[in-house]
Nucleic acid binder design. Sequence first.
DNA 1: GGAAGATGACAAG
DNA 2: TTGTCCTCTTCCC
Length: 281
Amino acid sequence: MPEGHTLYRLATALTGSFGGRRVRVGSPQGRFADSAALLDRSLLRGAEAAGKHLFIQFSAGRWLHVHLGLYGTFEVVAGPAPAPRGAVRLRLSTASSYADLRGPTACELQTGAQREAVLSRLGPDPLRPDVDPELAWRRISSSSRPVAGLLMDQNVIAGVGNVYRAELLFRHRIAPHRQGRDLSRSEWEAMWMDLVALMHDGVRTGRVDTVRDAHLPAVMGRQPRVDDHGGEVYVYRRAGQPCHVCAEALATELLDGRNLFWCPRCQSDGRSSAAGRPRPG
DNA sequence: GGAAGATGACAAG
DNA sequence: TTGTCCTCTTCCC
């Protein structure tokens, strides 16, 4: 679940259910018990997302920093809280709703200064209107690292995960191993605009859908994708299956310890594909 | 019943 | 680059 759009939805849901209220804070699993006791019955001001980070502001200048990591979940549910199921690190609750956090990489109390330190390390976040994408371009255009690695680097762009990076590269026909400094300015600008639009779609729908209308299941007469991730995608976790555009078998490889997926024909840097150049949007 | 794997990030060497 | 952490689901025996 957790790429940037997930955290923005979460921040909105948490603020909606708990913002401006005094909340019960507990750690049924126990690992956050001491800090939870400090926060219990205090005023929750609101929650905000930055990249894949979530910050929940409480009274007295306290911030709760949450990072979901690979498989963390944070469920916000209407209704009275039931007995905890599984390893619930953190539970927020009022009489009318509750939220359970499981498996996070980070769940810690922070001061405002510590929060600022986290924020200062993040590259521009496509979901925030006030960011300067030029900062990301400077880092990409001066780097010899593969574009696929740069897109996942939170210091370069904040909030992009394995799904968005694979799909963005496909949509722009960029070979994942091309060096950052070999990306053209116009390619970058198109990718950034597309990423902003894709991630806003993700915030709206709660899914990552990257397939253009012409390649949707109904249009192509193929089965819709069914898995835990839910969205219609071109290449993510489709290794060995035919490309929706050119039918070539999709490739996979471990890059920087993460699974990378791409189409060797559509993303071959220069050679033309059977279906022509995909356009953003 | 157990292993493998997953949309992530960090420290150590 | 490798190891480590966090939890749950899926798959295989």
